[in-house]
Design a protein around this nucleic acid. Sequence first.
DNA 1: CTCTCTGTTGAACGATGTTCAGCTGTAGTG
DNA 2: CACTACAGCTGAACATCGTTCAACAGAGAG
Lengths: 209, 209
Amino acid sequence: MARRNEHSKAQLRTLAIAAVRAIVAEHGPEKLSVRKVAERIGYTPGMLYHVFACLDELILHANAETLDGLLQRMQAASALPPAEALQAMAGQYLAMAREEPHLWQLVFMHRMPQAVAVPAWYQQRTGQLFRLVEEQMARLSAQRDAAAVHLAARTLWSSVHGISVLAVENKLTIAGDVDETAMLQSLIHHYLTSWARDRDQERVHGEDA
Amino acid sequence: MARRNEHSKAQLRTLAIAAVRAIVAEHGPEKLSVRKVAERIGYTPGMLYHVFACLDELILHANAETLDGLLQRMQAASALPPAEALQAMAGQYLAMAREEPHLWQLVFMHRMPQAVAVPAWYQQRTGQLFRLVEEQMARLSAQRDAAAVHLAARTLWSSVHGISVLAVENKLTIAGDVDETAMLQSLIHHYLTSWARDRDQERVHGEDA
DNA sequence: CTCTCTGTTGAACGATGTTCAGCTGTAGTG
DNA sequence: CACTACAGCTGAACATCGTTCAACAGAGAG
């Protein structure tokens, strides 16, 4: 039974990643297991450890594909005028989260085991997401310095993230329906309106009205 | 060895919840297990199932205490002028997340098993958090209708949540340091500035600049 | 045709959440 | 004070999990 040589190492990786995504998309992240992945691609669990260091690495690769999908859709929106582009990007984030809630739950919930750093190839993806937002913020207010754009982009995108997480996990349905799309629009509209107007915001702290 | 009767059911619950919080605070959420909780309070794992339905219920109670702590600190801030109050509330959120990162990770990461609803007594807590924010938003713009306040409060607090989650999980340290306090201040300042000014925002969608 | 090497297996390990028959102390009854 | 009945708790068991690794078997080289 050993030494089948039906697939190359690269093929096995691709197969395994696809299996992870299929299992999670169909049955949710909590049903994912090494054994189920192996069974789905017709191998034994042990094999996966010749191709991935551990389950976390496999999950990270599956999540990278999800992020790549978002990156693509965000890039498609980046040609619009900045405020519209950011609205569209956030809309794509929410749309993807609604289309494949389980795959996004996998992205959100996954944590590296105890102080083990996220690999560079993965950080590069999340970095790119922020960069796309930064680009639009810079277009919106050209005279702002890089640090201000950096801060504002992270602020805005973390906020979009927060709304999307709670939406995907149905933690907003408490006490009446909420329209997540309206929340994202409200967030971006108001944040950008004030941010673009006010050039010295980084020195302003919350005093009084 | 059976039938010790040293503690009442209520005492056992309190002991177990405290044990969960101690284990998580010391070693992180991933080190939590029914067996460790039982060992810490000098009982066997089986006992816990006479007092809680499952591990998730125990975790939910531990998380409720964390939320209660935040509620208290937020309530203390609610006497300030609205904009300051919201800044202070968000500051408390971040402060608590930094003081007890592991306990907050437990709050953030916990999911109910597959479409099982969060119990009412827990939803009440998260509802209260939103309500405290709503109150301040209402104070800020009295002529806004309830639906607009509802939406804005959820938008703002979900955003605060997003920034705090990413801060606790160190997912913002990608490509240079970020000051989460500055992010929260920026978010609240700009969102409120525009929201309080613009009374017809709910009909405004992201058109062009 | 044989040897070597390597891809793959399958069994094992320790850990997890959860269940439950059964034991053993405590409380109530006579 | 003895006895019974019940309830609190145990401890072993089950199924599952990620991970490891000795051993095997098939492909390619000679």
